[in-house]
């Protein structure tokens, strides 16, 4: 049956956290080879980089407010001698 190709060792099991839950957990783990050979009571203790929960939040983005970034760039561009570095520059201005 083509649904299940051969098992490979490229996976991590995500453990069900409740006593009542059944025995399978699923996750898309994108090629990280981290095999957990743990007992039932042992939780995976290492923080896996793919556990990006908080990183998906707006305030965790490298540029979390593009409009404010552009406005600030413009303010400091017109008041200081140096500019750039964060994003590819847009248009200039004849700021006095």
């Amino acid at each position: 049956m083509s649904v299940f190709p051969s098992c490979q060792n490229r996976f991590t099991a995500v453990r069900c956290q409740t006593l009542l839950c059944r025995a399978i957990s699923a996750a898309c783990l994108l090629g990280l080879s981290a095999c957990s050979l743990t007992q039932d009571i042992v939780q995976v203790s290492e923080v896996k980089p793919w556990q990006r929960g908080a990183l998906a939040r707006d305030d965790m983005q490298v540029i979390n407010d593009a409009m404010e970034q552009a406005i600030d760039d413009h303010v400091y561009f017109s008041r200081e001698g140096s500019t750039g570095g964060v994003v590819v520059q847009g248009g200039g201005c004849g700021c006095n």
Binding site: K48, R52, V62
Partner: peptide, 8 residues
């Protein structure tokens, strides 16, 4: 780069 689940 994501360094860990709390840091980029």
């Amino acid at each position: 780069r994501v360094l860990n689940r709390l840091t980029v």
